[in-house]
Amino acid sequence: MHLDEGRKAAEAGEWVAAGHAFVRAAMEGSAEGAELATQVTVGLVPLADAGSAEAAALLAGIYLEYFDESALPDAVRYARAAAGAGHPAGQRTYGYMLLEGIGVPEDHERAEGLFRSAAEAGDAYACLNLAQLVDDPDESRRLLERATREGIDIAGALLADRLSELDRDEEALTWYLWAAERGHTGAMHAAACWYRDGFGTDPDPVQAVRWFLAMLAHDEGDGVHEAIEMAKSGALDADQVREAGRLAGAPEAAKSLIATVWGEK
């Protein structure tokens, strides 16, 4: 869908809309989206040079994410221009550069200020970044909650971590599941372990193996070893493994696990 939107916008010469669509596709794992995002820079550069803060912010992000180091000076230049114009995405991108020392000297205080300005303007990723810098745990949780409203999976996983530190395990598990359902493999692993060990819920070996197997769909195989150990320990039988595979959308992985543990074909 995003690729089609981007192509239509590019055909109409709407370079900012095309760039945003291709970046969204790339963020969802599309290699073609990433390639097309690099191509629309040809149309974005004149807009940014003419003073478009939105084009400059988008250019900076594309240069930073999808080009090699030779594009870094341009990424810094456009991010600085967008931030100076008060564009939230530009502030967030330039803040990230300052935080990590990417193309500019590290300046955590200035980075935090830029993240805060962008967050106050409603930028969800700035909320995520700021949440990891502030000392106030309540503010951090509020910022993460704001980021989750935009569907940012890592924000849910971090929110779960914060709640776990407060021994609010039932709430924490809810957020691990929220992030897991959106593809965050760390949250999948946490949910699996919590179901296995009974943190925040009663032990549920089927749900545990379900999330261990779900990790496979995201090219993360570590959970399989833990699922095998659970099956070998007698925590669940072959039928339960099949159910876990069904829930995970990974019936073949479940079949392989059963063959490994019980020798069934």
Rank of each mutant, 00 (worst) to 15 (best):
H2G: 06
D4M: 12
R7L: 08
R7M: 05
K8R: 13
A9C: 01
A10C: 03
E11D: 14
G13W: 00
G13I: 01
E14F: 03
V16Y: 05
A17F: 03
H20D: 08
A21G: 12
F22D: 03
R24N: 11
R24A: 12
A26H: 11
S30G: 00
A31S: 15
E32L: 05
G33Y: 06
E35L: 12
E35N: 05
E35Y: 07
L36N: 05
L36W: 11
A37R: 04
A37Q: 04
Q39L: 15
Q39M: 15
T41K: 11
V42P: 02
V42M: 11
V42A: 14
L44H: 04
A48N: 05
S52N: 11
A56I: 01
A56R: 03
A57N: 07
L58C: 11
L58M: 13
I62L: 09
Y63F: 15
Y63A: 12
E65C: 08
E65T: 14
Y66I: 10
E69P: 06
E69K: 13
E69M: 10
A71D: 00
D74S: 09
R77G: 00
Y78A: 07
Y78D: 06
A79H: 09
G84T: 00
G90A: 00
Q91E: 15
R92Q: 14
T93S: 13
T93Y: 08
Y94P: 00
Y96A: 12
L98A: 06
L99H: 13
E100K: 15
E106Y: 08
D107G: 03
L114C: 01
A118T: 04
A118Q: 10
A119Y: 00
Y125R: 13
A126N: 09
L128C: 07
A131C: 06
Q132M: 10
Q132Y: 04
D135I: 01
D138C: 01
D138W: 08
E139K: 04
R142E: 15
L143D: 06
A147E: 12
T148N: 10
D153N: 11
G156I: 03
G156K: 03
G156N: 02
L163R: 11
S164G: 15
D167L: 08
R168F: 02
E170I: 08
E170F: 02
E170K: 12
T174E: 14
T174S: 13
L177V: 12
L177C: 09
R182Q: 03
R182H: 04
R182G: 00
T185G: 04
T185E: 13
G186C: 03
G186P: 06
A187R: 02
M188R: 03
A191I: 07
Y195R: 04
R196L: 07
R196E: 15
D197W: 11
D204T: 09
D204V: 08
A208C: 07
F212G: 01
M215F: 06
A217E: 14
H218A: 10
H218W: 07
G221F: 06
D222W: 09
H225G: 14
H225F: 14
E226P: 01
E226F: 10
A227F: 09
E229F: 08
E229S: 14
E229G: 13
M230Q: 04
G234P: 02
G234F: 05
D237I: 05
D237W: 07
D239L: 10
V241K: 02
R242I: 05
L247G: 14
P251G: 10
A253I: 06
A253Y: 13
A254C: 01
K255A: 15
S256Y: 05
L257E: 09
L257W: 05
I258H: 03
A259W: 07
V261W: 04
K265E: 15
